[in-house]
């Protein structure tokens, strides 16, 4: 059994997995890792199953005191064990201090070999901070929290080559949404910048407005990836923690396979939405 104590937390550190499915009928959001590919990568490196719960964090680095030996892997940031650079995985002895740097993009993932002890709500460990579901008491981690890990990883650690191509202007593939027809211009004619107010609920963009025949729709289903067009003409892309219904026209949807890439584009960087 492994054990580690939070010495320094990051404001957005939560336990996540693939999220909740099948409960949108009760108004329950999806949640789950913003960048699934990185989450899977971290799990694979320590030999966990792809869907095992991991620690997701953003904005700032974190430190832990290791109370019982653990094997960890970190994807999306640098890892120091007692001030020595390790990575992407390490076996950390009792008494060592594990430091995780600020994520290089937006989100980084720490996987710990074995199974992280956390709360399951609606079949998922994913933390929903608004409803208080899953994770560690349904909230972000705080200083002093002790994480327990049971058992060890079921399979041998795998090296999984994973490099996301770097682009100056990231192209994000989308599909048409129900209100696509209200657009008078194609979204691909615009270059947008990621706004710093983006979070796990949604990604806000900055750029020139899209011309559309604006119509408010009566509240109807939305999903992570739904591209809404509010009256100001600048699209908002809903993400994992979004509500189950919304009232803005849904001009499109970012493909599921592109959501992780989108989540990792840093504020100020550019993107294009392509059909």
């Amino acid at each position: 059994m492994g054990k580690l104590k939070v010495l320094k937390t990051s404001p957005l550190a939560t336990v996540q997995d693939f999220g909740r499915f099948g409960y949108r009928r009760y108004g329950i959001p999806h949640c789950g890792a913003m960048d699934r590919v990185s989450m899977i990568h971290a799990n694979t490196l320590v030999g966990n199953s792809e869907a095992s719960a991991v620690l997701e964090y953003a904005l700032a680095g974190m430190s832990f005191e290791v109370l019982d030996e653990i094997q960890v892997s970190l994807v999306g940031a640098d890892m120091l064990v007692d001030d020595q650079l390790f990575g992407p995985k390490a076996r950390v002895k009792k008494g060592s201090v594990l430091h995780l740097s600020k994520p290089k993009q937006n989100y980084a993932y720490l996987a710990i070999a074995g199974s992280l002890r956390a709360k399951i709500d609606f079949e998922s460990y994913a933390t929903d901070t608004k409803a208080g579901f899953g994770g560690i008491e349904g909230r972000t981690l705080k200083k002093g929290d002790v994480l327990h890990v049971d058992g060890s990883s079921p399979t041998d650690p795998q090296e999984s080559p994973f490099v996301r191509a770097h682009e100056d202007i990231t192209s994000i593939r989308i599909m048409k949404g129900p209100e696509w027809g209200t657009l008078k211009e194609l979204p691909s004619t615009r270059t947008y910048q990621i706004d710093s107010s983006s979070d796990r609920m949604g990604i806000r963009l900055a750029g020139d407005p899209l011309e559309a025949e604006y119509q408010e729709i009566s509240s109807s289903a939305v999903v992570p990836g739904t591209i809404q067009l509010p009256p100001n003409g600048i699209p908002i892309i809903l993400m994992n923690d979004c509500q189950t219904t919304g009232g803005y026209p849904r001009i499109g949807k970012v493909l599921d396979s592109e959501l992780g890439k989108l989540a990792q584009i840093k504020p100020g960087k550019s993107l294009r939405l392509l059909l």
Binding site: M175, K176, G177, P178, W180, G181, L183, K184, L186, E213, S220, A221, V222, V223, G225, T226, R250, K253, L255, D256
Partner: peptide, 30 residues
């Protein structure tokens, strides 16, 4: 682009417009 792209469906004596909302979600609107 002005034309709404959809299919339609007759269900329960009602006419429904059908759109994809995501890879696995289909919107039926009446």
């Amino acid at each position: 682009m002005k034309v709404r792209e959809y299919k339609s469906l007759q269900f329960n004596h009602l006419q429904w417009q059908v759109f994809p909302l995501s890879e696995e979600a289909i919107l039926l609107e009446c």
